[in-house]
Amino acid sequence: MTSSRASAAQQRPPRRKRVVLANRRGERQVPRTIIELEDQSTMGEAMVRGLVRAQLRTALLLAGISVVVLGALPALLRWVPAISRIQLWAIPLPWIVLGVLPFPFILLIGYIATREAERHEREFTELVDR
C-alpha cells in the first residue's frame, strides 16, 4: 500500500490516476487543499493537527464530565446516607439514581459528542472547500 503511494509521488502520471479514483467516489472537483492534504505539506499537516486537537479536546471534555458525574455517585451514595432515606413512589432514591438515570445521561453525552464531532468535521470540510 505504502510502496505504491511512494512511487506514485515520484512519477506524475500515476498520481493523476489516483485523482480519477477519487472522482469515481463522487468527488467532482478536487480543490487545491485536498492535494495539500494528500501531499502532507506543512499547511495540510497543520490543518489535520488542528482538527485532531479540536476533536480530542471535545472528547476529553465530555469524557471528563461523564467520569466526574458517574464517578461521584458511588462515593456520594456511600458517605451521604441521607440520600438513601428519600423515596420516590415508594422506591428508594439510590435505585432510581443508579437504575434509571445513568442511561439517559449517557445517551445525552453521546448525542452531544456526536453533534460536536460532526460540527468539527463540517468546519474542516468548509476550510478545505474554500
Binding site: Q40, V48, R122
Partner: peptide
C-alpha cells in the same frame, strides 16, 4: 506513515481519504 494514517482516520468522509 503516521501522518498519512492520521489524515485518513480524522478527515471527514466526504473528502475521500
Amino acid at each position: 506513515a503516521t501522518g498519512r494514517v492520521m489524515l485518513r482516520m480524522h478527515t471527514p468522509d466526504r473528502l475521500g481519504f
